[in-house]
């Protein structure tokens, strides 16, 4: 029994044209037994950063609170909101602190990064393993029990320069089709598309078997 598969769940993030999307399933399981179908694994960090925390459910709650605390401390000390790239390193060092007794979470970060010179917002995604090794991908990042399926479908469906609505369709199709082949993920999904002026959040119905 792998601790990473104890509760199940998967998260994916994708880059679009001036937007990013992050999505997860809603299942919470006790190994093969499904115990909840409304377990959200994605949390807002700022109004344009979201973090997905697939892995051991108890650590989802713990890390969510730890990140909230550390981001608040950052905001107070620096008197400004945190940027996605800074937050990614905050996540990384938080996880690496527990190098030899890790949280069993593989976080996915999605946000819009403000260029300090021009003030422009550009898409930013990152993934990390459970001890905080960051992966700055240009296209998409995946994690969770359906990660290999997500890789396969995303590699086939994703293309550069997707507009928000097309990105929503791409990430939703990728997630739904991947979790339908994973026994530990599924039971509906939630998608957030982060654009310059708003965040579109939609809950999706999925197969219930």
């Amino acid at each position: 029994m792998s601790i990473m598969e104890y509760n199940g769940g998967s998260v994916i993030a994708m880059v679009g044209k001036d937007c990013v999307a992050i999505a997860s399933d809603l299942r919470l399981g006790n190994q093969a037994l499904t115990v909840a179908t409304n377990f959200e694994k994605i949390f807002p960090v700022t109004d344009r950063i979201y973090i997905g925390l697939p892995g051991l459910a108890t650590d989802v709650t713990t890390l969510r609170e730890r990140f909230r605390y550390r981001v608040n401390m950052y905001t107070i000390k620096e008197s400004r909101t945190i940027e996605p790239s800074t937050f990614a390193h905050l996540v990384s060092s938080t996880l690496y602190e527990r190098r030899f007794g890790p949280y069993f979470i593989e976080p996915i970060i999605a946000g819009l990064e403000r260029n300090p010179a021009t003030g422009e917002l550009s898409p930013y995604i990152a993934g990390a393993d459970l001890i905080g090794c960051l992966n700055f991908a240009k296209d998409f990042v995946v994690a969770g029990t359906a990660s290999d399926k997500l890789f396969g479908v995303a590699e086939g469906l994703w293309e550069p320069g997707l507009e928000p609505e097309d990105l929503f369709e791409t990430i939703s199709q990728t997630l739904l089709n991947a979790v339908d082949r994973d026994a530990y993920s599924g039971w509906g999904a939630i998608v957030h598309v982060i654009t310059k002026d708003k965040v579109i959040s939609r809950t999706l119905k999925g197969r219930m078997d």
Partner: peptide, 13 residues
């Protein structure tokens, strides 16, 4: 080897 990558893509397409 890549069944888990390809099969869900085929389900979709």
């Amino acid at each position: 080897a890549a069944q888990s990558l390809v099969q869900p893509f085929l389900d979709n397409q």
